[in-house]
Design a protein around this nucleic acid. Structure first.
Lengths: 207, 207
DNA sequence: AAAATAAATGAACACTGTTTAAAATAAAAA
DNA sequence: TTTTTATTTTAAACAGTGTTCATTTATTTT
């Protein structure tokens, strides 16, 4: 009965090759400008054959996007060892920004892109609950900060939203290229610089 | 000599009709999914004729994009009367958020939607840079705040980017409905609440 | 009325995502 | 081994895209 299993493995392998090719091209020239024919060319198969492994182009995005939340969550795991909540909060922000800058297309799919990904957020997708978990982790950390005497006068939920918004705002303006004209001469460092300004503010709020 | 002028007016009128049709469709189904043929159908002209009034699709987007900035800029004009820079900064944030919440589609077009036109951001279009006058106004205001003794230890440009990012982050997460799952019970107020948390932080940084 | 000018058109080109009937290949059964 | 069955891959086709351009249509000038 090893033949059926080998066939299954072969099929899974080609599926994986499609995903790798798609990811390569998405990162190289963007999702919209990558065609099914481009992907097919790269793996040396016909365009039609891709539709044997994925329903459509969106399903390829979705498949890659699932991996995205898993990646982000696994990056956050090192924070379990950071006992100081303020330190944890800052390192959380750094991990979030790093992830976004290193995987802009993935981040785009996860937090910026609209319509075709709506079903992801309405479904009981396990990976989405992972993302939900990330925000709850932020809230818990901020709650700890408050209990430790920081952020006096602030409300936990709204402050958590504000913190999330701040890092999301920076990386999404960068990813959608809204700071290129306005901050042309320091495109590469502006997000990191903004983050360090944010850390300065957080430190000042701790006193 | 009134004939030439009438022709000029007619031409300008058709140009305007193209823009209105494009705006309608862009906001309705997105820039990428709106075709030149769609626009032509709506104004009951042939697709080719649109190229008599705009170099390409990018130029149509560009034109609408600028109009949005002009709108936002005109709302900011009342701030000229606010002499206290910290007060001006806060009211600027409120105007920005209000504009975004009242015109989510236009905001989407201006700051969130994928901007397919590379040449726009790479060009040294003077008029385009005018569109970003709002950001320069923010920078000037923060510069004034620093000169008045606020934001000690902060760097003006990076801080300006951070402030912009914070308000952009909140409204864009709201517009793209990323807080619905995570903050289901206070969708309607979370942006305003987040902004008020932000104001609290700004006040604390003034001391 | 004829000539010159400007505007609008529709067909064509090279792309896109996706579907599908047919062909090639591999596996199972005779 | 040969035939039948199932699967995988393909090429062609469909309907769409942005854009170009020769041709037609309408308007203005002579």
């Amino acid at each position: 009965m090893g033949i059926a299993e080998r066939k299954e493995r072969d099929k899974e392998e080609l599926r994986e090759r499609i995903l790798i090719a798609a990811k390569t091209l998405f990162l190289e020239k963007g999702v919209e400008k990558t065609s099914i024919r481009n992907i097919a060319d790269l793996i040396e198969y016909s365009p039609g054959s891709i539709y044997h492994y994925f329903k459509d182009k969106n399903e390829i995005f979705h498949s890659l996007h699932q991996g995205g939340f898993q990646q982000l969550m696994s990056r956050m795991e090192v924070l379990a060892k950071v006992s100081n909540p303020m330190e944890r909060l800052k390192r959380m922000g750094a991990i979030y920004v790093d992830f976004a800058l290193e995987n802009p297309d993935m981040y785009d799919l996860m937090f910026i892109k609209e319509a075709p990904m709506d079903h992801v957020y309405n479904s009981n997708d396990e990976q989405w609950k992972e993302g939900f978990g990330t925000f709850n982790f932020l809230r818990a950390t901020i709650q700890e900060c408050i209990q430790a005497g920081h952020f006096r006068g602030h409300e936990e939920e709204a402050l958590s939203f504000l913190v999330w918004s701040t890092v999301h705002g920076m990386v999404s303006l960068h990813i959608r290229r809204r700071c290129e004209v306005v901050l042309a001469q320091r495109q590469d460092t502006i997000v990191k610089d903004g983050l360090s300004e944010f850390f300065t503010i957080l430190d000042r709020l701790s006193l």
